[in-house]
């Protein structure tokens, strides 16, 4: 059973002077699990990855990764992990192929078959045509794809992806998702740090939410959504008449927290709106109000609460809990 735990961090802590970047973090990740790590800028995601891959020493707590102590057995550990860093991996003055070949060598990919393996990952991330051009001339998304390609070139057992979708177009993002799933199918484990909630929701078996280096929530995306999101969003398609503005009508309905035009395009002669209702009754009242105003309603569809709702709910909660009460004017002036 124990073998099944790939990452086991207990009270893992890292301070930088006054700042506590990772604060008594407890995290367990099982083999072939895709775990998302969400959190604002500065929440401690990158620092966690550095600690778990043994490139930064912890100042407290402990971690076991793939059965090894990351700090003491770093070299052995890093042979089996792959890290897509936030920063570029391949120098601008190298070509994509040179960069990948370099990393394949350092990760110990056998020379026999190395070139083929490089071609293979170039193919997966659609970089074959640009393979022999200097990386300096790549677009941001291409650089990101290259960075992902080189993380996978040696077939790691544990993959850390630090904000991998930054700069990716939808096609490349899809290719990444496919790769992550393929990897999991082959038994690899993935820790995905991201701000991309849609991706996290689609891909992750489990997410942990970090706030100031602490885990503030943990569970499957659905569990978290159910537990934390207050009031769901409802998408509603109405007739696009010019006599009445449906948004004005809805704004007057009690129990609706927000009403806005939806980004997506509805069918011919229809407008799509998105509203957030406190409860089911409010939805009913809203439909009723539209009908009374002679706006024809074509469709009403609840949106499953998503991680985005969770994210903001958590953020609000954290702010109200963490923010210290303002001290009385007399106190603390002298400091």
């Amino acid at each position: 059973m124990k073998d099944d735990v790939v990452v086991d961090a207990r009270a893992l802590t890292r301070r930088f002077g006054e700042t506590v970047a990772v604060d008594a973090l407890d995290l367990r990740v099982r083999r072939a699990e895709i775990v998302g790590m969400l959190g604002h800028n500065g929440a401690g995601k990158t620092t966690t990855v550095r600690l778990l891959n043994g490139v930064l020493a912890a100042t407290g707590g402990s971690a076991t990764v793939l059965g090894l102590d990351p700090w003491r057995d770093g070299v052995r550990l890093r042979r089996r992990t792959g890290v897509a860093t936030e920063t570029p991996a391949v120098d601008d003055r190298l070509t994509g192929r040179e960069g990948l070949t370099f990393f394949a060598r350092i990760y110990g990919v056998p020379e026999v078959g190395l070139a083929r393996r490089v071609d293979e990952v170039l193919g997966i991330f659609d970089l074959v045509d640009a393979a022999d051009e200097r990386v300096g001339g790549y677009s941001r998304g291409m650089k990101q794809r290259l960075s992902l390609a080189r993380t996978l070139v040696h077939g790691p057992e544990l993959l850390f992806l630090d904000e991998p979708t930054a700069g990716l177009d939808p096609v490349a993002a899809r290719a990444l998702d496919d790769q992550v799933r393929t990897l999991r199918a082959s038994g690899a484990t993935v820790l995905l740090c991201t701000h991309n909630l849609v991706q996290a929701q689609a891909l992750c078996d489990r997410v942990v939410v970090l706030e100031r280096g602490r885990v503030v929530a943990e569970g499957t995306p659905a569990e978290l959504a159910r537990a934390l999101a207050k009031g769901g969003h409802v998408v509603i398609d109405v007739e696009a008449g010019d006599s009445v503005d449906p948004i004005t009508v809805l704004r007057r309905v009690p129990g609706l927290r927000s009403v806005e035009a939806h980004d997506a395009i509805a069918g011919d002669g229809a407008r799509r709106l998105r509203m957030q209702a406190d409860d089911r009754a409010a939805v009913a009242t809203a439909v009723d109000a539209l009908v009374r105003a002679n706006v024809r309603v074509f469709a009403v569809e609840p949106e499953a609460p998503g991680l985005e709702d969770v994210y903001f709910a958590l953020h609000e909660r954290a702010r109200s809990v963490v923010a210290p009460p303002t001290p009385p004017a007399a106190a603390g002036v002298e400091s």
């Binding site: 070299v75 052995r76 920063t87 990393f103 350092i106 080189r150």
Partner: peptide
Amino acid sequence: GERERKTLEALLHTPTS
């Protein structure tokens, strides 16, 4: 230069001692 170009971190994450 390697630090300036930010490619150092990726290098540190590799299994070189």
